[in-house]
């Protein structure tokens, strides 16, 4: 379990005040949780607190009983919490697709055969096998996004924190991410999915809504999306089908559709 308790964060070198103002929630193993919020609401900052890239000003983030405040545990915490950044170029560091996927594994002390096998599996899983020797910069945006995900998946983290991982994917591949979330949660991994697409929040069991550094909702997505006016006020949309359905209901024709 990742347990976030009264988490506060203040941007360094900024005159503005809190980025996160006292958040508490839990992400359990085997659970999928979506996180929505307008630009500047603190989503990415929150994500970066979950594996100790950022440390809270007060409150705590505890991953499987390890606090991110404990420097000796950070290495282990980062093995437990796999981060997929919004822009894949922020995390790609090597010169070929194959090396990129092997990069994290190299520090785990695996024997060669196992490493090769795991890299092969990851490349196949994310349809990258034919690009092994290609430099990542030669891939398309969507392919680089799959590469970033493959490099995290290969490490078998206990939790995934994914910051808009579908943003550059074509609609078909986006559906595969939905399936990925289902498979990984079934394998008892925890998922935090940051998204701008309300339709993607429906893939998850819970939806957290962040506004101005505070947690406004922590409910099943269907429940949250009944509050269309409140969400619009915060600059967020409900799924298009939800909005159209609500409109039909308001017209009094629900029985017709």
């Amino acid at each position: 379990m990742i347990e976030i308790l009264d988490l506060e964060y203040i941007y360094p070198e900024s005159d503005s005040d809190f980025a996160l103002r006292g958040l508490s929630f839990q992400l359990h193993s085997g659970e999928s949780v979506a996180l929505m919020g307008s630009n500047g609401s603190g989503k990415t900052t929150l994500a970066r607190c979950l594996n100790g890239l950022l440390l809270p000003a007060s409150g705590s983030v505890v991953v499987d009983k390890m606090s991110t405040a404990d420097e000796d545990q950070l290495h282990e915490i980062r093995r437990h919490v796999g981060m997929v950044f919004q822009n894949p170029d922020m995390q790609i560091v090597t010169t070929t697709v194959e090396r990129e996927v092997a990069f994290g594994l190299e520090n785990l002390g695996l024997d060669h055969a196992e490493m090769v096998q795991r890299v092969d599996e990851a490349l196949a899983r994310f349809h990258l096998s034919s690009y092994r020797q290609i430099p990542p910069h030669r891939l398309s945006g969507g392919e680089r996004q799959r590469l970033a995900l493959a490099s995290v998946w290969v490490m078998q983290p206990s939790y995934y924190v994914m910051d808009e991982p579908t943003s550059l994917l074509d609609p078909k591949t986006r559906e595969e991410i939905r399936n990925f979330i289902r498979v990984e949660t079934k394998a008892n991994r925890g998922m935090l999915l940051i998204t701008q697409f309300p339709e993607e929040a429906l893939w998850c069991e819970r939806l957290l809504v962040l506004h101005d550094g505070k947690l406004v909702f922590d409910n099943p997505p269907e429940t949250v999306f009944q509050n269309q006016d409140v969400l619009k006020e915060m600059g967020l949309d409900v799924p298009i089908h939800t909005e159209l359905q609500a409109y039909v209901r308001r017209l009094g024709f629900e029985d017709r559709i």
């Binding site: 630009n39 808009e164 550059l168 600059g235 967020l236």
Partner: peptide, 12 residues
């Protein structure tokens, strides 16, 4: 524009 609205909220 290449993927101009990726990562943007509704207002942006």
């Amino acid at each position: 524009l290449d993927e101009p609205t990726v990562g943007l909220d509704r207002a942006s």
